[in-house]
Design a protein around this nucleic acid. Sequence first.
DNA 1: TTAATATGATACCAAATGGTATCTCATTTG
DNA 2: CAAATGAGATACCATTTGGTATCATATTAA
Lengths: 106, 106
Amino acid sequence: MENQTQNAFRALADPTRRDIVQLLAVQDMTIGQLTDRFDMTRAAVKKHLTVLSDGGLISVEVRGRERINRLEPLGMAPVLDWLSYFDQFWDDRLNSLKEAVERKSK
Amino acid sequence: MENQTQNAFRALADPTRRDIVQLLAVQDMTIGQLTDRFDMTRAAVKKHLTVLSDGGLISVEVRGRERINRLEPLGMAPVLDWLSYFDQFWDDRLNSLKEAVERKSK
DNA sequence: TTAATATGATACCAAATGGTATCTCATTTG
DNA sequence: CAAATGAGATACCATTTGGTATCATATTAA
């Protein structure tokens, strides 16, 4: 799917997909198991898994007739990289905000 | 707009909006200035700014007939919070990956 | 005050998105 | 083998999204 930063951010933009990521952080799961946790069809969950896979956030291990979905830590890297670009900015602004609050409280 | 985590993630899901965030990290800009940087109409840029504003990522200061758009560091907090939930997970997985690679290279 | 500038608002459109229903295929299991 | 199970694929649908065109409004400048 080419642009990993875009695909990863896109994958995280949906609340159901973020929930899936959190569930898979606890343990690997099949589509069937995931579907049990949501109020939607297996086909819908499958679509979300495809988007997560395109984003590099999960991988699938075929095991007999089951597919084990597993979180891929490397997939989050582009997101963290992009965000880290602002580390200094956030720090500076948050610090000046904090200082402003402290000045006011005197 | 209520759900800040969702709105912030949604705001970051579009490449144009991420570019806007990066531009505003360098300096505050009006819509007109931002529009000069993109190959789209002012109306389109305005829509992106609205989404960024809903996500709490920018604020606007009215100044005469101009509107100064400025990055809001606090807006990124819900995103960083959500991601930080996985810090330990990423660390563990990346470490075991690293170890696996090292074992293989022996 | 009139014209230019900076922006907002709205109607409209094509494409993408999130979902269902349905059919097929592969692997277990009785 | 036959039936049940787990999953993929596709067609279809309503809504959202990203964009344009156009018109209206407020402020600044001539």
